[in-house]
Design a protein around this nucleic acid. Structure first.
Lengths: 157, 157
DNA sequence: ACTTCACTGATCAGGTTGTCCAGTATTCTC
DNA sequence: GAGAATACTGGACAACCTGATCAGTGAAGT
């Protein structure tokens, strides 16, 4: 596990808020030397704290305004991994986890409309090994995905 | 809704794979003029297709290897928004949605350990208006969060 | 046929990057 | 407490990239 301190958190905050600032400008804003910012970024990446800097694409903006969460039961004997691999082939499936509890898999899916969601679910349940799917629709995004508050909390103790 | 074409998708693919490439290098790799890449990026951002370029922080790497999904029932009369705002104050709560079905809210939470998860859940259920919480633990990340395959699919028709 | 739009290829000044370095402060180890 | 390791600062350098702008070309829509 990698240790992150308050400066790391401030650096990532800044780059999250204004991705276009360069290392030099960041060092000015944070009041540290440029080499420090550069070294911190390198370290964060090397330690795996930062997985990447990919663009955050809004699915609504590209025509998929419907988000749903599906929990799946799979047949005894079907491997989770095999089923998950088949799900990965469906582009509308954005995320898949194996979970505890009565259900086996959890996934996040998107669709162009509620009617289109049926089409996507059909693609999901047709996957070999899936026994049952239960779906709920996300009505509103109350707290958008975020990690930075946690990062700050992690630097406290 | 913004229209995205294959070139947009290729641009975002490239920047997701290699965030450090500049606009100039990207234009060379993609075989288009630099101004085109620049204009596309500006448009994608302006149209809201790209929300940002924030660092993808790995919660495991910063000491929170446990991910769980909680569904909450809230008391009749308690506003979803009020409850969600209270949840937003807990850094371990990474995401909150209102959902259809028997439950009212869905949220993603992380913790330092299974024991620590109890602490976080306690913080969640103590929020005024929450009646009941049901939690499942994510055992394995079968398909990590992704959007780019969908982006490519959206450019097909 | 006309207008609009997007792309190309080019230019320009200015700023930034990557990479060194020596000096200093802090923390850790023996 | 002494020595070693580590991290940060402030500076330097050449090479490169950015943001902005331009005229010219092709395609699409009116």
């Amino acid at each position: 596990m990698a240790a992150v301190d308050a400066l790391d958190a401030r650096i990532l905050d800044l780059f999250a808020a204004e991705p276009r600032v360069g290392v030099l400008e960041a060092s000015r804003r944070l009041g540290v030397a440029r080499g420090t910012v550069q070294a911190r970024l390198d370290r964060l990446q090397r330690d795996g704290v930062v997985r990447g800097w990919g663009p955050d694409v809004d699915t609504t903006a590209i025509g998929y305004p419907v988000t749903a969460f599906a929990t799946l039961q799979i047949e005894q004997g079907s491997g989770h991994t095999t089923v998950a691999a088949a799900l990965a082939a469906i582009p509308e499936v954005l995320e898949v986890y194996t979970i505890t509890g009565a259900e086996d898999l959890w996934c996040r899916i998107v669709a162009r409309s509620n009617a289109d969601l049926q089409r996507v679910i059909d693609q999901v349940v047709i996957v070999r090994g899936i026994q049952r799917a239960s779906t709920v629709i996300a009505l509103a995004e109350q707290v958008p995905h975020r990690v930075l508050p946690l990062l700050h909390a992690a630097t406290q103790p």
